[in-house]
Design a protein around this nucleic acid. Sequence first.
RNA 1: GGACGGUUAGCUCAGUUGGUAGAGCGCUGCCCUUACAAGGCAGAUGUCACAAGUUCAAGUCUUGUACCGUCCACCA
Length: 885
Amino acid sequence: MSDELPKGYDPHGVEEKWRTHWRDKKTFTPDPDAPGEPYSIVIPPPNVTGALHIGHALNLTLIDTLCRHYRQKGRNVLWVPGTDHAGIATQNVVERALAKEGKRRQDLGREKFIDRVWQWREEYGSRILNQIDAMGCSVDWERLRFTMDEGLSRAVRKVFVQLYKEGLIYRGKYIINWCSRCHTALADDEVEHEDEQGHLWQIKYHVKDSDESLVVATTRPETIPGDTAVCVHPDDERYQHLIGKTCIVPVCGREVPIIADRYVDREFGTGALKVTPCHDHNDWALGKNHDLEFIQVIDEDGRMKPESGKYDGLSKEECRKAIVADIEAMGDLVGVEKLAHSVGHCYRCHTVVEPHVSDQWFVAMTKLAPRAREAMPKYTRLLPEAWLKTYYHWMDTIRDWCISRQIWWGHRIPAWTCQACGELMVQEEAPKACCKCGSTDLHQEEDVLDTWFSSALWPFSTMGWPDRTKELAKWYPTSVLVTGFDILFFWVARMMMMGQHFMDEVPFRDVYLHALVRDAQGRKMSKSTGNVIDPVKMIEQYGCDSLRFTLTAFAAMGRDIRLSEDRIEGYRHFVNKLWNSARFTLMNLDKEPPAPVALESVQGLASQWILHRLEVLKAEMDKAFDEYRFNDVAQGGYKFLWGEFCDWYLELVKPDMQDPARKPESQYVLYTALKEILLLLHPVMPFVTAEIWQALPGHAGEDIAVMPYPESRPGCLRPDEAAKMEFIQGVIVSVRTIKAELGIAPGRKVALKLHPADAAQQALIEANRTVIMTLARLEDIEAGAGVHAPKASASDVVQGCQIIVPLKGNVDLATEVARLDKEMGKIQKGLEMVEKKLSNENFVARAKPEFVASERARGAELADSLAKLEKLKARFEEALQGGED
RNA sequence: GGACGGUUAGCUCAGUUGGUAGAGCGCUGCCCUUACAAGGCAGAUGUCACAAGUUCAAGUCUUGUACCGUCCACCA
């Protein structure tokens, strides 16, 4: 009986209980030898020291929903959890903590600093894991991975060495993006460009041995000491005569050539460009093409180097002021104007990024990209498809990937240089001696690898590669990658490349890119804006199932999600509704499970109807899952449970529960329908469904998470019976509406007279007499063509059946006329639209015949209703004027 | 400069092959009907951004315009 379930659903104890159950029982640890078609997903690993944010919550919910669904469908499901060491981000966090003690990492030294990071990870690394657990994620905790653990580090070294030997990793001096705060190189895509208001200075460069000068425009005067050329467009008539001559760089007096290159935009600024090969990406290319001198004047800390002459030691900001002042003093400052231009910032600390020339390691993306490009959509489907174009564009314009980082936290590059002979050795384990000269004086590369390097291996490294494990054999490639579109390039594209190169197979069959979660105004959620919705708080406040349901309901493909707390609160009501429908069901069941009946041949119309609707829903939800239409999954369940099961079915079977002849069948259908709706909702709402399930008779001690998806019962699809039910519902709604609009209290029992359209309708009404009486709250029903209908009655027409509610003179009769007019107005309007269509020759000739037929039928029904209402209204008006009853 | 997305009820958003627009919250009225007041019943509100086109028929397809947003590239 129901006393097992409390009146309102309280998620707290329930969630805790099931989390513990699943973890202790290792419910989600699959056996690779077990039968079942494999289904696998690797988690997008959150930063190890991070905290759960709403984006994770969305991502985890969607993945878990998929895993639980396909587990129900009999697949052998593996979801690999894990975390990322997040090189720069984590190092920054620890450095900040250190700064509070007044220390820098250099004060500790490399080893001690790394110890300190591990210590930090011990302390905070479990936070995010607990939060993943709190989301109800059905991950396999036995296969938890971390990008820096021994197995994955071995995979990283093996990949690095192999790529190096294949010539796909190389080392060289190039211009890269440098963050002087993080003190490291950054990859191109780790630089965030933002528009900023700056200045464009116009500065006069004098031509050597001439009175002439030319004016260059620059936004960065501090780089002037590094200028090694001035460049103009070869066809620019203003400057043609100067090409090949020499000019003097202001402030430092260096003599540099005036060169010509089509790269220069004649329209911009003065059409003359100063070239600083060491401090600008484009100038670097010009320097290489024109064989210019390379002079570095800014160092790795953003300070001026001795090469800058008198500005040595100044910060670049100070230097800018000094140089502008000096040039102005010389009278060579022609002008300054404001200029909006975009400036690169470090994606981790937001410091302005400086182009910087240094020795770095690179992956030859241009060689790896073509195969990964071709793989989509041939071997891997990308959803939403719109991203495919972006993916191609990126692959087509890809540049080599700078993978070395001048930080300490990460996978140290497995390369050693012999201090004696200079030999470079790249190998998985540290060499004991130089392979060339035998010296033991070896020095390992100081740099570590970009975090995304290890992330790129995640789909196979987490399954034990390079060993040939059962996991790889069973679950690689993974079924789908679910992640945000913001890391399509950082991560997805690189996994595609590495997967193909090392496993000779794409890492996933599908890639589903979900939206970003924004606030109600559409802004990105960020701590600084103060608009974050904290999923942990939401779970505490509304329960995990409410949060999950909200996120799922919002996850329409290809659109951003604007989340507000109201929505979560709203869907909490839904969780509660489910809970209470279960309470009702339990109240009407016995301790033992109800005796099975053949569902294909149940007698009750309501039961035929709900079983029919359930079949339709099962098929729809199944399809929605296969197509990643998460919002349809959620809404399908919502509408069915609330709008059909609760609003109608539970009410419809209430009379049956008092009728010994009908009770057993209705009990069994009620029991079955609830169980199936629980199974259908379980992937989205794991906790509440699990709790209800084990409270059902016959299911004590069971775990819904391991129960199969409800089987389809084609025999229960009965559209004709469903239509009959809809007629009964129409009659009930009609009476309720009359009562509500005429101000008759809902509880006041009235008599109902019906003039059915035909004998079948008449029989249907008789068969469902009790239900109509109960739900419409009637004292009596009289149905039949000859039933006397008092003139003073409210009336309506449902599918040709006249609904007559005698008013007995105790309500405001005039209201009924207004109500009828309004009703007839609506029908009239509909009728006009139909007639307009049908009188259109083109419509009749060209529209699909079945549609024309259905329009004809509809027109006939509307006309019939209208005629009947007009007659009833005329009679009613007679009554108003005192005519007899 | 290139690409993409959005514009639907007061607010936040759904709307799967074109066929008379839906949900949540909010709002109005009536109800504590023994699962649920976190509820029930009934109701109001939309020239589906604008313009043109295709079609018998357009929120849905095509083109253009406006506004908002995102990504990429460039930016001396």
